[in-house]
Design a protein around this nucleic acid. Sequence first.
DNA 1: CGAGCTTGTTGACGCCGTCAACTTAGCGGG
DNA 2: CCCGCTAAGTTGACGGCGTCAACAAGCTCG
Lengths: 202, 202
Amino acid sequence: MTRESTAYHHGDLRAALLAEAASMIDEGGTSSVTMREIGRRLGVSRSAAYRHFEDKSALLVAVAAAGFDRLRDRLEAVGAGAPDAGIEQLPEVGRVYVRFALENPGHYRLMYGKEAITREDHPELRETANALFDELVRIVQSYQQSGTIRREDPHLQAYVAWGAVHGLASLLIEGQILTAVDVDALIRQTTSTLLDGMRANR
Amino acid sequence: MTRESTAYHHGDLRAALLAEAASMIDEGGTSSVTMREIGRRLGVSRSAAYRHFEDKSALLVAVAAAGFDRLRDRLEAVGAGAPDAGIEQLPEVGRVYVRFALENPGHYRLMYGKEAITREDHPELRETANALFDELVRIVQSYQQSGTIRREDPHLQAYVAWGAVHGLASLLIEGQILTAVDVDALIRQTTSTLLDGMRANR
DNA sequence: CGAGCTTGTTGACGCCGTCAACTTAGCGGG
DNA sequence: CCCGCTAAGTTGACGGCGTCAACAAGCTCG
């Protein structure tokens, strides 16, 4: 009954594959993930994974999906912490977003890059990402209604905000920003510049 | 004397390798670039490239370097067109930057990603990129001196601006922005939000 | 003309993803 | 209880990849 490591049948290989792939991704980048190496690490044959995922791309898609779930959870926790959608919410969302990317660089690249995954074949991922973006649009609209920011096309404003935060995360992940720079100060500067640029007065 | 296609010795294989790699990069992404395929396309053996580049990574580095040169040329042309560094310069720089990324997505990914290249081994690239960034810092400082924007840490401000533009380029390249969106409007919204957010008044 | 350097080719190795054919474990029905 | 079915895992094989070593062809200069 103790189905732990009773050998031949692994018990929960699918979950183990996902976990191993995820940790390899954040350690050595997407290119370090190898069907054969995953098998080696889990003490399983090279093609065992094919019983659980159609191919390598499908495994990566599943890892990316898990990443979206975790990111969504974190962002929702921000909303839950500040129930009245005060002015603090947007900067905090930005901070949590960038932090997520820094802690899970491989995940983040996988989620928002198309090099490894080719999104066309996996539209479910796109929808998950879109849902996250729609949440941002909603936040922007609530800021508009409270009169904090200008009433312009909320989609454009949301794209600008997302772009700024994504760009910052991206530059940090890819090592384009000098390590001497204070990351939290940079995040604050980004979110406050953004908010000032969108403010209603003028 | 007509050294064109006289066969064995290619004439200028090095340049041909660079050009072929570059066009493959923007057509099918970095992962579609293959030493063997380049050889095939140029009618040359699979390992001929190794007489001109130490390995695949070195070839990619050379392609990225060429990309930096082209980007720099384009950005300098903007500066030359508006010699008095008027208020128009920064938005135009942003526009040209994003346009470059859209026209050369593979190049752009290669230049500002670390997945394919591992920048540590090739510090010359980092320096080129840094030189470009320093140019942005200089523009920011000139805006400060003319009293257009607030006098804060110019490096932080430059990173914020770069981040916003890079993020926008990145989202567009990776297909994260609905194709129905007007790209030029998005670029304008980004640069004007940025400038408003950095303005001196308040 | 011939020696030596440069440039290109071929063969081989060990990786990789993946498929087909096989084996094993466990489960449900007689 | 056992027997056959199915799900899960293994092994062998194929073609593609990057790269190295050994070799060959062409150029250059004395």
